[in-house]
Design a protein around this nucleic acid. Sequence first.
DNA 1: CTGGGTGCAAAAGGTTTGCATACCC
DNA 2: GGGTATGCAAACCTTTTGCACCCAG
Lengths: 160, 160
Amino acid sequence: MESRIEKIKQQLQSQGFKLTPQREATVRILLENEQDHLSAEEVYMLVKDIAPEIGLATVYRTLELLSELHVLEKLNFGDGVARYDLRSDDNHHHHHHLICVECGSVKEIKEDWLLPLEDRLFREFKFKVIDHRLDFQGICSECAEKHSGNETSLNDQPSA
Amino acid sequence: MESRIEKIKQQLQSQGFKLTPQREATVRILLENEQDHLSAEEVYMLVKDIAPEIGLATVYRTLELLSELHVLEKLNFGDGVARYDLRSDDNHHHHHHLICVECGSVKEIKEDWLLPLEDRLFREFKFKVIDHRLDFQGICSECAEKHSGNETSLNDQPSA
DNA sequence: CTGGGTGCAAAAGGTTTGCATACCC
DNA sequence: GGGTATGCAAACCTTTTGCACCCAG
């Protein structure tokens, strides 16, 4: 964890930015909650616990800056707020999301299953892929278990 | 086109809603611009030409209603506005987007390349897919041509 | 001193809501 | 009349911006 902070510090400094206490606190929160996809507001709430004087605007500015440095990825699941996700390495961020329409949980899959498709896109459409975004909406295993026993067809539309 | 409006009218009526002149005008705009991914504001501007008295709120309410009926899909490309896309059939909406990071164009691919992956998700993660969303960011063929001649590596990060 | 960084409050921009009015069975 | 639908304006919410102040080199 310290080494990851150190690395981010170097990334900042290499561009002339500083790892201020506020930024460090923000990064720590992101590291501690790496599995979640926190919104700016959520990050703010958590950061306030360890750096009470911080302002929301600073959190936004930090998240924006880290996104530009490709330390974070800014995500949008369509719920009206931007969410942020640490990138594990700097150039490839090919993971996928499983979004449960029942409980709202978001699970991350680290593998990249799309390389063959990206090749095909280039061949068929001359479209050179830089990054992609793949989200699946469906029913997670936990929610599916709650249903076991009734006969709900999983092909039905969810009642949204 | 008239038959598609008729079908939407029936979908509305089956749920106790009406196809009012404002809603019909909105649907016509969506049909006429099926290839684009219009924002609410853009729909509003276009609808005003054929139904000048309409209000923005009505457009939002219509778009929301049609999304609930699965006539439209509400999309978010991360540019701060929701966009809307007509669904060609009611249960399967498996298409993909090619988003050019240079010119911002969005091209739609109608095929579904992900069925094998969805099977795999169910086998490996017990996750039952209902729908998915796949967007590729990259360089479209038009923009790539503008670059032909210089040596820009397409593996470079775009300057965002 | 200079440049980046911060907090606060205000502004911005997209979307939603309250309400009085209008329409239709 | 009861329910749905509409236009307008106000409210909302997330995000951005302006500005005075602060800190490190």
